[in-house]
Design a protein around this nucleic acid. Sequence first.
DNA 1: GTAAAATTGGACAGAAAAAGTCTCATTTCT
DNA 2: AGAAATGAGACTTTTTCTGTCCAATTTTAC
Lengths: 147, 147
Amino acid sequence: MRLTRAGEYAVRCVLHLAKQEPDALVSRQTIADQCRIPPHFLAKIAQQLAKAGIIEIMQGTRGGYRLIRRPAEVSLLEVIEAIIGEIFLNDCVIRPETCQASPDCAVHRVWVRARDELRRVLGSVSFEDLVREESCCLVRFPLSPPA
Amino acid sequence: MRLTRAGEYAVRCVLHLAKQEPDALVSRQTIADQCRIPPHFLAKIAQQLAKAGIIEIMQGTRGGYRLIRRPAEVSLLEVIEAIIGEIFLNDCVIRPETCQASPDCAVHRVWVRARDELRRVLGSVSFEDLVREESCCLVRFPLSPPA
DNA sequence: GTAAAATTGGACAGAAAAAGTCTCATTTCT
DNA sequence: AGAAATGAGACTTTTTCTGTCCAATTTTAC
Ligand code: SF4
Ligand code: SF4
């Protein structure tokens, strides 16, 4: 019952892009270094983010990644689900047919509620919010290695 | 980001016990059959539930499991966490030292909020609630095989 | 007391998912 | 054309989950 590492990396990556000037292009290596992500792993994650329409990938010598939507329009939920798929918490929430009790199961209904609530919380936070909240002091604790 | 099978089984097991008369003793085999749980797997789950003080295990010929607390006093959260451990969603929520950014990370704070909210939802439901909500119609859809 | 019937506790194996690595192909800039 | 970057997917390793097995223990029944 937890976020995968890939999901966490995706959030870091998008947050990093959201902190730059709009439409800034940042190389994969730079992001990997600053966000502590294995570069090749980041490549796979970026491909999924691109497929989801969140970032754009530029190839070539001066290539890299670019956020193609305004940070205010990208929610935490969206980035996470682009990587780990839709959050459902318990199988029966998304595939009721796997348990014949589901139509009348009170537990099932609780899971549906819990899932909705969790998605609501994550969906209510945009990357603009995150950047604004961090800008005050993150400078003191960069993710990049001290030296 | 989902409940493990063991967690789901634990909930079924406790719910089954909660449906019986108070202090009823039900054999492992009966629970395994009716709740569709591999019997030996159930044994391990029951051990954890017993350690958590939720059920009591009786050995011997007429042995089995018994709920030792009133259904109203057992929450869904408690049973789940007895099996899968405390819910934290993202590593840094429970072990901030794993990410040096945590003291100033806005994302971290969202995860803390999301975790609290999820635990609140699951913690607000007791097995008494679940039994009451189900009793109206579950009879038509027993978990046990049709024949 | 002994046998039968049930569970215990831990070891163990198989399966599945996650995490990370590697390589060759492709693209772009110079 | 060559250098420098990413693309795409195969591959390996690690971790977690799921389930099984068996000797030991406990209780009941005779
Ligand atoms: S018993 Fe209820 S909560 Fe469990 S899998 Fe079936 S429908 Fe879902
Ligand atoms: S970057 Fe923030 S959310 Fe991600 S692990 Fe670090 S503290 Fe947690």
